[in-house]
Design a protein around this nucleic acid. Structure first.
Lengths: 248, 248
DNA sequence: ACCTGAACACCGTTCAAGT
DNA sequence: ACCTGAACACCGTTCAAGT
């Protein structure tokens, strides 16, 4: 009984929260506050910077604890003094990248602010395309992500939408931005010369089963990934304004 | 010189295509056609079924080649006779799951068909939520995915949109569906009792930096993930019809 | 007290040796 | 010819031994 209780408490103290969850971020903030500086040259900031450089240049798979330790000229065990696990490191990395979003000046508000923020979020994620698969590992609840949510939601409310509309609209918009980023980066594997494009694949399909694709094969060549993003953003906002006409 | 040439050719013959790319799918189809039956009890179909069961019950991380071999009562090396790599297996798994989409009867066309297909794609992916992170590994170009593209695009064209509109609209719509699925499954980490919801996190934020979030905190409790999906789908289609009014 | 070398329990993949 | 046990070159993480 007592042994089981102790074991349970130990689990809780060590932190039961999964990295990236709301609970984890709350605990993380408390942990950072009571942190005392380390005697070695390492810091969470240096680790994150080195990890991001590694991911950007060699991909997410290259981010191993051992390799990162090599880059920082230490042993892998030393990193565990600053970061609890590889998963936690990735969660910190994602919020760090979201922190690269540039916010528009105070004069920009309403729909324009929403558009700028959507474009910015997409820009910083595409700038770190190798990190994108890591976005599925946790919800976006870090401080930088929350700042984006604050501003995006404010933009929609400034634009005149009621909170009951603005909240689902904001969430749907983030879903769309992330979707374009996922899709664009997963299609990126095709290197121009050697590989076939999806259009080449379409021309191999039997015309009786795939009449629409075969007939419109050329259209798939034309829209760039940025075109599709702009098309979707404009169409979504048009639909929002059409469904919920503003009072003014 | 000659050694280098031989090495290059060998690389190409072994297949230079990355699993899931258009080139890979084309090669895959050719490979399947000339495949002769194995003497052991294994088949790609049995492997995929066992892999999916494992992912569904224990998660994507539990899908190791060794564990899968155990489940199939063989050694890990034997699986490499049917599947070239773990990555290839995951690509096959994703298209297999997309194959669970149920198509509407022939009477359903136009906007209704587009809605049904969007809802179906979301349903099958949410049914296999543990597999969702694997969707970022490759573009969706398998036979089952192409069937979905054929039908989705046909729906938009039946609805009266020109191909130059229908193609980007289809791509943006898939981006949105995938985005909601990614977002919903990555937020799923919060188990009801122990964990905090994002709303609990919001109430910890300083009101001077996050006024909009604090003021509208309650709204984030209300919309379920299905509500946000339905909201976004309806809004996007409304925007499409508003921007490109039909002739009829 | 803080740090870390060395070990533990795993991976995906290959290939020589068996049938 | 086909199949696979055993090995290779890695992982993330832990902890006893050092300073």
């Amino acid at each position: 009984m007592i042994a089981a209780y102790d074991a349970a408490m130990r689990t809780i103290e060590v932190s039961v929260a999964v990295p990236g969850s709301a609970t984890w971020w709350l605990e993380h903030r408390a942990r950072e506050a009571r942190r005392r500086p380390r005697t070695d040259g390492l810091s969470t900031g240096r680790i994150i910077a080195a990890a991001l450089a590694l991911v950007d240049t060699e991909g997410l798979d290259a981010l191993t604890v051992r390799r990162l330790a090599d880059d920082l000229a230490t042993g892998s065990a030393s990193l565990y003094r600053h970061v609890a696990s590889r998963d936690e490191l990735i969660v910190l990395l994602v919020d760090h990248v979201i922190g690269e979003v540039r916010y528009p000046p105070a004069g920009v508000s309403g729909r324009a602010k929403v558009e700028v923020l959507s474009i910015e979020l997409r820009r910083v994620l595409m700038d770190h395309a190798n990190l994108v698969p890591a976005l599925t590992a946790s919800p976006l609840l870090g401080p930088n992500a929350m700042r984006g949510t604050e501003n995006g939601l404010a933009g929609l409310i400034e634009a005149g939408f009621a909170p009951t509309v603005a909240v689902p609209a904001y969430l749907a918009l983030v879903d769309f931005v992330l979707g374009t980023v996922f899709f664009d980066t997963s299609s990126a594997g095709r290197s121009a010369g050697v590989s076939h494009s999806s259009s080449d694949l379409i021309s191999e399909l039997p015309v009786d089963v795939f009449p629409t694709l075969r007939a419109n094969q050329g259209e798939f060549e034309l829209p760039s990934i940025d075109d599709v993003f702009a098309f979707g953003l404009t169409t979504f906002l048009a639909g929002l304004e059409h469904r919920f006409p503003l009072d003014g």
